[in-house]
Write a protein that binds this DNA or RNA. Structure first.
Lengths: 334, 334
DNA sequence: TTCCTCCGTCGAAGCGCTTCGACGTCCCGC
DNA sequence: GCGGGACGTCGAAGCGCTTCGACGGAGGAA
């Protein structure tokens, strides 16, 4: 293994000079830097991560806690993870993957052993048991998602309430008066996952504001459940002409179900969804939708963390505004 | 921060004794160990990962390279990742997440900086550009998936060839004489991803062996493509009564497509798939299938790595035998 | 009883890096 | 012409842990 002293000797300088040349924390003359870089290259030097972490008290590793629970849509989680990794790399950090299995103990472990400098936590519940720990930890953290109160924390996410509202406003703007929400699986609400509830709140608030008749139905992520929910919505509100779907796996099944009940999309029924663009575009009738901007959220989370690591302070709440992409599934009410 | 010297002082022993008590690398009397454990608990000590890595030349971190490319089925990847993390934790290791973005440079970086002790690489191509690097690296690695030649490497995966064969044998055993394979998206074959090709090989070999008439069609992961492929298969082989699907996202669309063409499943057409059990069970007609045993593969990969890290040697190839679960989608030929 | 071995513990020497204070040197302003 | 910065570099002191050799004492064999 080639170490910094080898490089130093080869370049005819002291180890500290090599270190400074590498970190840029002190000025180094152009010529010396060049020599050092050449030596590094020739010798194939790469600094030992452990030694660096020990001496600098920075591991340059972030922890990412990903959810693997029922009812979550895996591809979206993966998008988050990928964007976090990419963003972290841009800041010269790596990402340690934690699952929720280990729970709070895992968070505490990686933080206490200084394995990581900071933490990113996904799939936050309204009353998440990890919150006290995160508040108490000496390492900064960012939550992707919002608990009941973000006090003393740093949270970032799509503004799901606004997303729910925006879907309704879009439908209302097209003249629809009777609308329904096909929601996430019941367990997601039972767990009090913030984003699902917030969509419902936004949906309901906007419906009331626009004096629309509305109803909300959680729905298991199976085609059969989709059919049941469609039937039920239609039975309760026969004049239904607009639907919002917040449940990725059954977007297409829901549309199929309504068509099976004799409603053409978008002829008789306008459909909007909160789901990734790829999904919305893949459906038989491309669906007007609001995407979760996973890349932005991931990058934003990392940026917030870097700010905190740099000693700066970060806002408690960062809400990204929803953007609705109009596709073929929504039309003015006939 | 509480360190090992603090624990040592508190317990009235030397730091090395604490270290040995923790690692078990030398015998420590029952009583001393108890005192040390008590001190650790009271003081809330956790060893500094960086210091440990520096002194012991082991970071206790594994790198996991996950694929994020077109045509791969994300939930399966996630299952692998989760099982790797779980297995790694059981061996007191953590997992560093790498995406393929950084490519070979990323592998080299985490290996050379001693950030990780070993590597797990997923989504291996037949002629994967990373192979020479993995062979040359001074750190052990395990591939999940098989390249053309596994010489000098350690690979583990479901035996996809056997899986393809098993699907055919099952259909042949039921009396079907004309069968088709709805494969993965074309780009997966173009990339020469081993597992997809091996299914085709197994399918073809078993079909020939059983003197079945067979044909193979790659298929994009969209319902429209599924419909086209179904039509085409049927046009070419009007007597078709058996189909193998190796393309998770369109399993249900393929069945819909055939039913749309007038074939009842399983009445007129038997369908088997290579896909996760959850998916196979979720379809309208539960599908006879072979699952990729993600948990086993992940755990196996970690075990192999641990063996190599312990100085042992690991077999170049570990193929897990496919297991076929019979469900409602296959029946004897009428 | 003597010698040897094994057990349990200690002290010290690093592991490879960063960082702090110090020390010339050069240049600028007065 | 001289004081004072800024610049560029060095040496040394750790960062917190593991590990190696050593050592005293207990116990068994001869």
């Amino acid at each position: 293994m080639v170490k910094i002293t080898d490089v130093a000797r080869h370049a005819g300088v002291s180890p500290s000079t090599v270190s400074y040349a590498l970190s840029g924390k002190r000025p180094i003359s152009e010529e010396t830097r060049r020599r050092i870089e050449a030596s590094i290259h020739q010798l194939g030097y790469s600094p030992h991560a452990g030694a660096r972490a020990l001496a600098s008290r920075r591991s340059n590793v972030l922890a990412l806690v990903i959810p693997l629970r029922a009812g979550i849509h895996v591809p979206v989680v993966m998008q988050f993870a990928a964007s976090v990794v990419t963003a972290a790399r841009q800041h010269d950090h790596d990402v340690l993957l934690l699952t929720q299995e280990e729970g709070e103990a895992g968070l505490r472990r990686v933080a206490d052993t200084a394995l990581v400098d900071a933490l990113i936590v996904m799939d936050v519940q309204l009353h998440d048991p990890r919150l006290p720990l995160l508040r108490a930890l000496d390492r900064p953290s960012v939550l992707i998602g919002f608990p009941q109160s973000s006090e003393g924390l740093t949270c970032i996410d799509l503004d799901f309430r606004a997303a729910g509202e925006l879907c309704v406003e879009h439908l209302a703007g097209l003249g629809h008066r009777v609308i329904g929400l096909v929601g996430s699986p019941p367990e997601v609400y039972v767990r009090e996952t913030g984003f699902a509830q917030r969509v419902v709140q936004g949906f309901t608030a906007a419906a009331d504001r626009n004096r629309l008749s509305s109803s909300v139905r959680p729905c298991e992520s199976t085609p059969a459940a989709a059919r049941r929910v469609a039937e039920r919505l239609l039975r309760e509100q026969p004049a239904l002409t607009g639907v919002v779907v917040h449940n990725e796996p059954i977007l297409e099944p829901v549309i199929d179900a309504f068509e099976g009940l004799g409603l053409r999309v978008p002829g008789d029924l306008s459909v909007t969804a909160i789901c990734p663009d790829e999904l919305a575009e893949l459906v038989r009738v491309p669906v007007t939708s609001i995407a979760v901007p996973a890349a932005e959220v991931g990058a934003g989370a990392v940026d917030l963390l870097m700010k905190k690591l740099g000693g700066g302070c970060a806002p408690e709440a960062t809400l990204l505004s929803p953007r609705l992409t109009v596709r073929a599934s929504t039309l003015p009410r006939p």
